[in-house]
Design a protein around this nucleic acid. Structure first.
Lengths: 251, 251
DNA sequence: GAGTGGTCTAGACCACCAG
DNA sequence: TGGTGGTCTAGACCACTCC
């Protein structure tokens, strides 16, 4: 079933002058080897100690590199057995990404119409999810997102005022998350809820769907490093052309 | 904003005779303290070295306990700053669970009707996702899941034949994943796709919904430790009473 | 400059698994 | 019984943040 010989890295070298952590350098090389097919599914790696020695690293550092890939679902380890490459090409576990990035990654040429971009006093509901007093100024944003020139989703977002400066141009050129990240906001956690419901007449018209078509709904509250709410989103997607796809890794 | 004094554990002791790892014991105590409100959002922990010393542990072990909670989204650390409890009660990151477990956890008294449980030759589609030749015997399973005596979802599953022995009684008493786990199957990865569509007439009747009502659909392929496909599921949920909820943690 | 977390080392002992 | 990963220690140096 498995390759008869355990993988022993002939060509891995690490750069000790680089600011990139050693464990991460090693993990990157291994990941590339897996994706390039040099490490095939089911193949066994040498044991930690041998690997560490052949790379001139300590065992904890080598362990950390391996553990990093185990956490991401690329490797499996069993005590008394060894470390193996998982038996299939695995997509990355679900991450904190935006629709824009996802579409761009898939090469689906996203496009955005900005329908609304203004400061408004927070309604009861928005104030509650953002954790600000009712009536506080918040940034309201509504966008229509296309993929390959077909309408895909209506994205309504609310942000605390003053957090980031958004322009219509900027929002057309890139996604909200990327804009927030380059403004120094460190997104850390997001709570998401995915549901479905039939489209209203107005929604159906915007998305070029028949009235009553099923829509996917996603509501998301995102928090930064310090636990502050930095964004609330209320999105609808055309279920006929979009679905959420992700990989779960058990721990 | 923050509590003026950093948290210093008065009452944490570890049991060195226990088979439970020390780092895990510490993490558990900290997690309980957070959930009990003894550690409040925003509160700072003592630094690693002080914590380690006061518990009689080495710094790496203390680090590991903290890192475990950081990975799960309960703590946040910043170099040069310190470690803080995140600013809100966070649900666990999305995990590999089954609907039955989720409902039971929420106290919603799940119930299951087993509509089908038999071995059949794999169809084209099923053979493909399970990675077996077409026509191979597979276990086909169809269940109607209730919560609080209202129909909630129709669950269709396919498993490689011979993997686990399922009985109608067993499936009524617990969820599929729990059954598989107690049969020694170690679930490791699952690839999921969530979408939506209108209900057909038959589906609407089964779920007590009007015809054309929106359904949430979930297709899942689950893999074990060694990367073998152990289950394929094709599920539909009443969108009017169910939604998927989860927390993402950025890495 | 003082304090924090981030990384790394060189050992050690143990639990689990396979033959 | 031998080999594997799982855990743990006691140090060390560095980078970042804040004052």
């Amino acid at each position: 079933m498995e390759s008869p010989v355990a993988f022993s890295p002939a060509s891995i070298t690490v750069d000790r002058t680089s600011p990139v952590p050693l464990y991460y350098q090693v993990a990157q090389v291994l990941e590339q080897a897996i994706e390039a097919g040099e490490l095939t599914p089911g193949q066994r790696l040498d044991n930690e100690i041998a690997l560490a020695e052949s790379l001139g690293l300590s065992r904890p550092t080598m362990r950390r590199a391996i553990q990093y890939l185990v956490d991401r679902g690329l490797l499996v380890r069993k005590r008394g057995v060894g470390t193996q490459v998982v038996h299939r090409a695995v997509r990355r576990p679900i991450e904190l990404t935006s629709l824009y990035d996802d579409l761009a990654t898939e090469g689906r040429s996203p496009r955005t119409d900005v329908l609304r971009l203004e400061e408004i006093p927070a309604s009861d509901n928005v104030a509650h999810v953002l954790g600000v007093p009712e009536g506080t100024a918040v940034l309201a944003l509504e966008r229509l997102r296309y993929a390959d020139d077909a309408p895909l989703a209506v994205l309504r977002n609310y942000l605390p005022a003053g957090l980031v400066t958004l322009t219509e141009q900027g929002l057309r050129a890139t996604g909200l998350y990327q804009t927030m990240r380059s403004a120094g906001i460190r997104l850390h956690l997001a709570s998401q809820m995915i549901g479905a419901r039939p489209a209203t007449g107005a929604e159906a018209r915007m998305l070029a769907e028949p009235r009553g078509a099923s829509l996917l709904t996603m509501r998301r509250t995102a928090y930064d490093d310090a636990g502050r709410v930095v964004e609330y989103g209320d999105h609808i997607y055309r279920a006929s052309v979009y679905s959420f796809e992700f990989v779960l890794v058990s721990r």
